[in-house]
Amino acid sequence: MARPLLAAIFISGGINALRDPEGHAKMAEPFLHKAVTSKADQLPDQVPTDPPNLVRIDGAVKVVAGTLLALGKFPRVSSLALLGSLVPTTIAGHPFWEEKDPQQRQQQMIEFFKNAGLAGGLLLAAADTEGKPSVAWRAKQVAQEAGKQVQDTAGTVQRKTGKATGAVQRKTGKAAGKATKAIESVLPR
Rank of each mutant, 00 (worst) to 15 (best):
A146H: 09
L86A: 11
A92H: 04
V64W: 02
T161V: 11
P133G: 14
D50I: 06
Q106K: 11
S12P: 00
L69W: 02
T153C: 04
A119R: 01
A2D: 15
K178C: 00
F112S: 06
R170I: 15
A143Q: 11
A146S: 11
A17Q: 13
T90K: 02
K114V: 08
S79V: 00
A179E: 11
A2V: 03
D20P: 06
T37F: 02
E22F: 02
I183G: 01
V77R: 04
I183T: 15
A136E: 15
Q107C: 00
T49E: 04
G155C: 03
A35W: 07
A92V: 00
D41N: 12
N53C: 01
P75E: 08
G147Y: 01
Q107K: 10
Q42G: 02
G23M: 11
D50V: 09
E111N: 11
P133F: 09
A154M: 12
R3D: 15
N16I: 02
A81T: 02
P48I: 05
K181A: 15
E184T: 11
Q144P: 00
A17H: 08
K62P: 02
F96I: 05
A175P: 04
I91W: 11
A154D: 12
Q158L: 15
A25H: 09
G166A: 10
L43F: 11
V61K: 00
A92R: 01
Q104M: 13
F74H: 07
T67Q: 08
P52C: 04
Q141E: 13
L71F: 04
K148T: 14
L43C: 06
S79G: 11
V47K: 05
P21C: 09
A179V: 10
P188M: 00
K148E: 14
G72V: 05
G59L: 08
V77G: 04
E98V: 01
A176M: 13
A8F: 15
A40R: 12
A175L: 10
K26N: 12
R76H: 07
L54P: 03
L187S: 13
T67L: 10
L80I: 13
D58N: 15
T161Q: 12
I9N: 07
A126P: 05
T37N: 04
P88A: 02
H94L: 03
P75R: 03
Q141H: 08
P48Y: 09
V47M: 12
W137K: 14
N53G: 03
W97P: 08
D45R: 13
L80G: 06
T156C: 03
L69H: 03
A116E: 02
Q158V: 14
G13E: 08
K160G: 04
F112M: 05
T172I: 01
A139V: 09
A143H: 06
R105I: 05
E22N: 15
Q42E: 14
H94R: 06
L118Y: 13
G147F: 05
Q103K: 07
L80F: 11
A146E: 07
W137H: 13
L69T: 10
P52T: 07
V87S: 06
A179Y: 00
L71A: 14
L82V: 03
Q103D: 14
S12E: 12
L82R: 03
P95R: 13
R3A: 13
T37C: 05
S12Q: 10
Q169H: 08
I57D: 08
E29A: 15
H24R: 07
T90Y: 01
G59E: 06
K26C: 01
K160Q: 14
T89I: 05
S85C: 01
E29Q: 12
G14L: 08
